[in-house]
Design a protein around this nucleic acid. Sequence first.
DNA 1: CGTTTTCTTGACAGGGATCAACACTAGTGG
DNA 2: CCACTAGTGTTGATCCCTGTCAAGAAAACG
Lengths: 252, 252
Amino acid sequence: MHLLARKLRHGANLTIKDEETLARARGAVRRVPARADIVLEGAQARSLFVVLEGWAYAYKVLENGKRQILSFLLPGDLSEPFGVLPEFSSHSIAALTAVKLAELSLPDLQAAARSSPRIQRALWWDLLVAGAIDRERIVNVGRRSATERLGHLLCEVNLRLRMVGLSDGLVCDFPPPQVDVADACGLSTVHVNRSLQQLKSSGLISLLHRRLTIHDLGKLQASSLFDPTYLHIRDDLSGRAFDPGNSMQERL
Amino acid sequence: MHLLARKLRHGANLTIKDEETLARARGAVRRVPARADIVLEGAQARSLFVVLEGWAYAYKVLENGKRQILSFLLPGDLSEPFGVLPEFSSHSIAALTAVKLAELSLPDLQAAARSSPRIQRALWWDLLVAGAIDRERIVNVGRRSATERLGHLLCEVNLRLRMVGLSDGLVCDFPPPQVDVADACGLSTVHVNRSLQQLKSSGLISLLHRRLTIHDLGKLQASSLFDPTYLHIRDDLSGRAFDPGNSMQERL
DNA sequence: CGTTTTCTTGACAGGGATCAACACTAGTGG
DNA sequence: CCACTAGTGTTGATCCCTGTCAAGAAAACG
C-alpha cells in the first residue's frame, strides 16, 4: 500500500491519517510467480488489487493469435478503477516478473474515499491519470514510428517509477523482454530489437540485464515526442531539461 | 440528457425517478458548429458535458503535426469521467458535425449518484465502458490490419449508436470524413480510401452520403475480429449472428 | 455556380513484418 | 557442477502493407 499512497501524493495532499486510512483498506497479500495469469479475460473480478512489488501487464489476445499489451502495471498501480468491479473483465492480467500484490476491499476503499475528501480526490486523480496513460498509448501505437514508440514507453515507465521512488530519474528496472515490448508497442520482436539497438547506439540509453539507463533524458524525450504533462504530475519530476541537482531526493 | 439516460439503461435498471434526477443535473445547452473546438488541450475544463446531438471527437496533435483521434463522442456520451474535473485537459475535443451539448454540474451529478445506488452503478458502468472502448482502440491500432481496423470501428460505432436508439442494428449515420477515420485508425487517408473500397466491394457494407449500411454484420464482425463483449451490454444487441427478427425494436 | 472539402487513382518508396537460423542466458534437473 | 532445455536476443534476407506525393474528379456548400 505504501507505494500507492506515495503515488497518490502527486495527486493530492494526503495527511498521515489519510495514509493510515488507506492502509487499512488493504486486504490479503498474494504472491504470483512470473508469467502466471492473475485475471483472465471474461472472468468475474472478485476484487481489485494494488501491485506491491514487481511488474504485471494487462493484455488482450485476438482470435488470430496476435496479442496486444494494454498497459504495464507497476508497483503502486491499481488493477481497476476504484469505484466498481466489472461484471467480467474485458482483458487479462498476468505477472511479468514475480509479483506481490494486495487485494483491496472495495467497500473499505469507498469508505475511505467518503471519509476524506483528499483521499477521494487522490483516487479520482489516479483514475484520471490511468485513463490518460491509456489514451497516450493509443497515440503511441497509432502515430509514432518504432523508435519513437520505444523511447516514449521508456520515458513513461521511467517517470512512473520515479513517482513511486523506484527510479532516480535516469536509472530504473526494465524487466519486460522484447516480445512484451513488441506487443505493447504494436511492433514485431525483430523490429523492437533493431530499433532498440538504434536507441542504444545513438547514445540515448543503455538497456542491459533488465536495467534501463537513460543517458540523455532531454534528447530521448524530444526524439520520442514525449510530453509528460499527461501524467498530471504537479512536482517537476519530469522536466524536459534534465536537472541532476534538483531536490527530489529528499522529497522521496 | 435523454440519450445518456437511455444509454445508462444498459448498465443499470434506472427508475423513472432516477432518470428525472439525472435530467435535473443538466445545465446550459450549447450549440457548436461543425469543426469548432470544444475543449483545447491544456485548458482547464470548467465543466463536463453530454453530447445531445451530433458527433464530436477527442484528439491529440503531436509536435510533428501528426494527429491521433482518441475517440468519437456520440450522442449520450460524457466528455469526462463523472467524478472529477481534471485540472487541465490532456487532449482536445472538437465538433465533428454540428453538435448540441449540455453542460453538467459536477456537484449535481455526484449528488444524483449519492442519492440513488442505481444511478451510481450506472455512471460507474459508463466509465468502465468508456475505458474499455479506449483500450479496445489500443488493440485496434496496435494489432489489426487496415481493413480490420475499419471494420472494427464501424461495428463499434454502429453498436454504440444502437445502444441509444440511433441505429436499427444495420444502418446508421457515419459522418466522419476519411481524414478523420484515418486519424482514428492510425492510417493514411489514401489507405483508408482503398481499404474502405475493399470492404464495399466485398459486399460487407455500403457507405454513402455519410450513411453506413452493414450488409452482413456477422461477416463484418468476424472479419474485423470484433467481439462486442467489451461494451458490457447486457441485452443482446450485438449478436455475432445477426437476427433480423429480434425484439429490440419494441424495447427501443 | 464558383470555391472549398472530400474522395479517388496512379506511381513509387519505405518502414516494418516475416521467415529462418544462430548465439546467448538462465534456470532445471541429473 | 555440468548438461540440457526453454526462453531471449541478434542477424540477414526478403516481401508487402501502408505511407507519401501528386493530381484529377466529385461532392458539398455558401
